[in-house]
Amino acid sequence: RAAQGRTYGNLGNAYYLLGNFQKTVGAHEQRLLIAKEFGDRAAERRAYCNLGNAYIFLGQFGVAAEHYKRTLQLARLLKDKAVEAQACYSLGNTYTLLRDYERAIDYHLKHLIIARELKDRVGEGRACWSLGNAHTALGNHQDAVHFAEKHLEISRETGDKS
């Protein structure tokens, strides 16, 4: 049964890379079920993240957000800061797709705080980029300029010409 769980996970990833997102969801749902049977929180966390990603490409952004929220809860439970940051970044982008810029800002700020904690300058730059855009969408031009300047500073530091 444990091997079946891993196989469903691998199968889901293969379907995902092939661009078959319906089959991706089917496989990762099975993977999730087996992870829950075993109380394997790390596998459960991976399945929620993979499901969230698949729902993004199925255009079901609200469903994707719910899966990313479970990913975030489990990342916190497992005390995995890097995964927590990644889940916040995914949620920020998903709420941008949903045009809910206040929630997007909330999650991008959470991502920014963890990126700083982890001294992840690339992550910090991306958070500032996203925050600048979300504030622009809301007409908060002062805040947008603040984050755009931070993004520029970090991009220069990391040598990101684009």
Partner: peptide, 26 residues
């Protein structure tokens, strides 16, 4: 997938391009 400010499309599209190749490996 979106019609909004061009800068926004940039940061979200960049994320989606990366996401397309990202899987949580067993």
């Amino acid at each position: 997938p979106m019609r909004m400010h061009s800068l926004q499309v940039d940061s979200v599209q960049r994320w989606m391009e990366d996401l397309r190749h990202m899987t949580e490996v067993e």
